[in-house]
């Protein structure tokens, strides 16, 4: 399912990051960073709400608009019942869609927003997403202060919040086409190897996107996947070559670019905020990219299902953007 857009633009983005990302290679592209995990709030969940609220404020300020100019708010995060999004939406108080596709949420939000704007149902949309390392660890794995050994393929949830302003205004990046992912499960049960879980979904969506848009890998100046990590990246490259005969060039993975020398982030970053923090950050600086393809990947499990020894399904959503000169 690929959507084609004639007149939709990703105008502006806002990016806020946490302590570990602050010391990473993307640090100079963030609008704001924090040095601890509480951001002045009492708990990590409330801190994640703050990430969403603040990134919304920053993007509205950049666009010189107010929340009255927004028609719809689309948001998602990793917490149970999407509470970070819900409580931030409470502050914003505009019509709201809560969505979930784990780490693929950012692009899912952009697709929904672009579809509604293209169909002239709304004029402007705000897409937000966030993740918080401690809140996610607490929910999906072990208590945060527990030091159980982790494997080399483990990824580290990024602490950050992003907001994107989408409308018909010809500013920023033109949204060209988007492919909606389908859930793929190739039998990987290992929660500590998210790269292996999500790579097949990324491959499937990428292949269908190229087929449906009749484009080639070489048409894009940058192809970026969400959080496959160091090993997932290699798996995807080999998978594309052996299954579809496609060689990936100009390919980067956001998880590999977000951290520098973080011991616990073995294979890289993960989380809904990983791809937007890196991709929006790279795009916000004057780069030589003209056409960019973003593929956000998400693993759709929770700890109950993995404790029942079920394999983990994954999804990937793709969107292509063109930089306006």
């Amino acid at each position: 399912m690929t959507f084609f857009y004639k007149d939709v633009y990703l105008n502006e983005t806002a990016r806020i990051a946490g302590p570990y990302e602050k010391n990473g290679p993307m640090a100079n592209t963030f609008d704001k960073t924090y040095s601890d995990f509480y951001f002045g709030r009492d708990t990590w969940e409330q801190a994640e709400v703050k990430l969403m609220e603040e990134s919304t404020e920053i993007v509205l300020k950049k666009m010189k608009k107010t929340k009255q100019d927004l028609d719809v708010h689309i948001s998602g995060d990793l917490l149970n019942q999407l509470v970070a999004s819900n409580y931030a939406a409470r502050t914003l108080a505009i019509p709201y869609f809560g969505i979930y596709s784990a780490c693929a949420t950012s692009v899912e939000g952009l697709i929904l927003a672009a579809n509604m704007i293209e169909a002239k149902q709304v004029k402007t949309a705000l897409c937000t997403t966030s993740s918080h390392n401690n809140a996610a660890e607490k929910q999906f794995r072990y208590p945060v202060e527990y030091g159980g050994p982790k494997r080399k393929t483990t990824t580290f949830t990024v602490t950050g919040g992003t907001a994107a302003y989408v409308s018909r205004e010809k500013k920023g990046f033109k949204i060209l086409h988007a492919t909606l992912g389908r859930v793929i499960d190739l039998g990987v049960k290992d929660v500590y190897h998210m790269g292996a879980v999500m790579a097949p979904a990324a491959a499937d969506t990428l292949y269908r996107h190229l087929q449906n848009t009749k484009t080639k890998i070489s048409d894009y100046d940058l192809i970026m996947t969400g959080d496959l990590g160091k090993y997932g990246k290699q798996i995807l490259i080999e998978y594309m070559a052996s299954e579809y005969g496609i060689t990936l060039t100009n390919y980067e993975d956001a998880a590999c670019l977000i951290y520098r020398d973080v011991k616990e982030a073995y294979a890289g970053g993960s989380g809904p905020a990983c791809l937007p923090l890196v991709a929006y950050g790279l795009l916000s600086k004057k780069q030589s990219y003209k056409k960019v393809l973003l593929i956000a990947t998400g693993a759709l499990m929770n700890s109950s299902m993995t404790n029942q020894k079920l394999s983990i399904p994954a999804i990937a959503h793709a969107i292509s953007l063109e930089v306006l000169s």
Partner: peptide, 10 residues
């Protein structure tokens, strides 16, 4: 796929 993953896992 399992073999592919194993090959790329450290």
């Amino acid at each position: 796929y399992k073999d592919l993953v194993k090959k790329n896992t450290p």
